[in-house]
């Protein structure tokens, strides 16, 4: 018999009542077989290794400069002065900037900043968003006021919040992370709230209610585990957009201090002489674009595997 609710597709309706006990491939093996997850994951792994092993990759301290090695082209030999004042020979694989700093070293060390900012923003905003979303979805009295505040935050374009906050605070890694994470919180909150509202209508949650399971246990035992997949996916996208936003802040000169090796800072410094030395912008630009692309591809893959319903939506 078919119900009004079950308007399954033709092919799906072919599974017979007692013969469809088909073992479902485990999530892990599905993930391992998805090309997006493979490529995005491998790229992220590589970038993480680069970030961790930055000092071993033929780099020098990214803040070192040498007035004698200014504006070198990629591959040029030159000299650089260490912190001890000693002058050492160095190959400028990606050239140097107008202070005589090694672009290659700065780009490699820049990986660290981007990955830390991306990961931290994703964790902070997902954590706070889950708290707010669970509260709004389960405590009815809190729903209205909390969601109105979230609407307010959402009404201000995220990048403007980030710019204003960083401008007001002293720019540091922590303040940049918080400033970028705050505008992401409402989106996570909304997602969690809507998931909670729909999952709590599921018969299995109602069954738990009549089994005498406490509200707290229902929330963390039945509802939260079923929000995990969309949250992981959302977290990946937040990571990608946070990396981009951090780069934009630095590029506009309102992010981390300019001697900090971030891709945005390198490009901000390079843009002045862009017409003569475009590589000062392009090298960090390529790293930035590839990193964000890797995170996004990974996110799309995770979404395809973990959350096929959402995969159909966007």
């Amino acid at each position: 018999m078919s119900t009004p609710a079950a308007s399954a597709t033709l092919a799906a309706s072919l599974s017979t009542e007692d013969a469809n006990i088909v073992a479902r491939a485990s999530v892990w093996s599905k993930l391992a077989r998805h090309w997006g997850v493979r490529i995005g994951g491998a790229a992220m792994l590589l970038l993480t290794l680069i970030a961790l092993a930055a000092p071993l990759l033929g780099t020098v301290d990214p803040t070192l400069f040498d007035p004698g090695s200014r504006d070198l082209l990629p591959g040029a030999q030159g000299e650089i002065t260490t912190l001890e004042g000693e002058s050492i020979k160095h190959e400028f694989m990606m050239g140097s900037d107008s202070f005589g700093r090694d672009i290659y070293s700065r780009v490699i060390y820049g990986t660290r900043v981007s990955l830390i900012v991306g990961l931290a923003c994703a964790l902070v905003s997902v954590f706070l968003g889950v708290l707010a979303g669970l509260s709004a979805g389960y405590l009815r009295w809190l729903d209205m006021p909390l969601m109105r505040v979230m609407d307010g935050i959402m009404a201000i374009p995220g990048i403007l919040i980030a710019i204003a906050l960083v401008a007001l605070w002293k720019a540091s890694l922590l303040s940049v992370i918080v400033a970028i994470a705050i505008p992401e919180i409402p989106r996570v909150t909304r997602l969690v709230r809507s998931l909670v509202l729909s999952i709590r209508e599921e018969p299995y949650v109602e069954a738990a209610v009549s089994l005498g399971t406490s509200t707290f246990k229902i929330m963390f035992g039945h509802i939260l585990p079923n929000t995990a997949a969309p949250l992981i996916v959302q977290g990946t996208y937040i990571c990608a957009s946070a990396i981009l936003t951090e780069a934009i802040l630095s590029f506009l000169g309102v992010g981390l201090p300019t001697d900090f090796p971030t891709w945005g800072n390198i490009m901000a410094e390079g843009r002045v002489q862009f017409q003569q030395f475009p590589h000062n912008v392009f090298f960090p630009g390529i790293f930035l674009a590839v990193t964000v692309l890797a995170v996004n591809v990974l996110g799309d893959g995770l979404r395809d595997v973990l959350d096929p319903k959402m995969a159909k939506k966007v």
Binding site: A247, P278, F282, L288, A289, V292, L293, N296
Partner: peptide, 12 residues
């Protein structure tokens, strides 16, 4: 499109 930063694209 989602991944390439606006300013990198602009310079390209």
């Amino acid at each position: 499109g989602f991944s390439i930063p606006v300013f990198v694209l602009a310079y390209i």
